[in-house]
């Protein structure tokens, strides 16, 4: 199955939701305020948020005027362009170390899908022939270490682990040493899920980052914030506070195989300039794809 198909399949339900209702308006042909109002509401229903929805609609309206578009049928493609542009303003490529291991720190709120994403990412790097080490930095949640060890077994990666309750920064420290000794290419660090408004937990995360930076020049090369695709506007608060604490370099948008739209990444990209780097499209180990703004917008917009 092609990538775009996968995207479209994942977003199938959301597309019907957004454009299903709008279909009648678009077919109606006339370009009036009612159409734009409907478009705005459809975008809000996709978790795009009130402000960004209004902004997108305004962009489309301006573009329609400029191109002297008089029928509503052409609006979806205008919207698609506006979205693609907004999402393309930032670079979605992964930053890898010039020499030595690349360290990726995975952060996010509880239940967003950090450990699963690490498993999928490990699988991906392994199939590209890289040596991957997993660091079991979630020393808090019951059996989180076992969960990561299971992923290590499935993907054939070494897992550096301490006992539950250990200092996660120490786990990362050991993982870096292990990566050097075993000449690993990538270190994927799991962390405990934490709500972003818990200051001590955010401070702990900052410490992990500091230890990584001290032990491995240039690290962390990526700090990926894992965002559950079903999350609403709270994802904005998550992006802001995690960015303040550990300087997030990218977003992983998970669970897009449901009916959720993940539209909240639009305001995140627009307000905080954090690129979306990966999307999780299912439960299989290979259901993680690099983010492509054009596809994402297309899958969301085209009826």
């Amino acid at each position: 199955m092609g990538l775009l198909d996968k995207f479209r399949r994942g977003l199938e339900k959301s597309r019907t939701a957004v454009w299903g209702r709008l279909g009648g308006w678009l077919a109606g042909g006339r370009l009036d305020d009612a159409v734009f109002d409907e478009m705005e509401e459809a975008l809000i229903a996709a978790d795009v948020g009130v402000e960004t929805a209004a902004w997108l609609v305004e962009e489309v309206r301006r573009q329609a005027r400029r191109e002297r578009i008089a029928t509503a049928e052409e609006l979806p493609s205008l919207l698609e362009r506006a979205m693609t542009e907004a999402l393309s303003a930032v670079d979605p490529a992964m930053r890898m170390a010039d020499a030595g291991p690349t360290l990726v720190l995975m952060v996010g709120v509880n239940g967003a899908g950090k450990t699963t994403t690490i498993g999928k990412l490990a699988h991906r790097y392994r199939s590209e022939g890289r040596r991957v080490i997993l660091a079991a930095g979630d020393t808090f949640r019951a059996a989180a270490i076992e969960q990561l060890v299971e992923w290590g077994r499935r993907t054939g990666c070494d897992v550096v682990r301490h006992a539950q309750g250990a200092d996660p920064a120490a786990v990362v420290f050991d993982a870096i040493a292990a990566a050097r000794a075993r000449r690993a290419d990538v270190i994927l660090c799991d962390t405990a899920g934490r709500l972003h408004n818990k200051a001590p937990l955010m401070a702990e995360l900052a410490k992990i980052r500091k230890v990584a930076a001290r032990e491995l020049p240039g690290a962390p090369h990526e700090v990926l914030l894992v965002v559950d695709g079903t999350t609403g506007q709270n994802a904005l608060n998550q992006a802001r506070t995690f960015q303040e604490a550990v300087d997030v370099s990218g977003i992983v948008l998970t669970k897009l195989d449901g009916t959720a739209k993940g539209g909240v990444v639009l305001p995140i990209v627009r307000e905080y300039q954090i690129p979306v780097k990966w999307v999780g499209l299912g439960e299989q180990v290979d259901d993680l794809e690099p983010f492509n703004p054009a596809w994402f917008a297309q899958a969301l917009c085209r009826p």
Binding site: K13, D47, A235, V264
Partner: peptide, 9 residues
């Protein structure tokens, strides 16, 4: 923290 999709779920 679920968004608009809560209804469908």
């Amino acid at each position: 923290m679920t968004g608009q999709d809560a209804v469908r779920v």
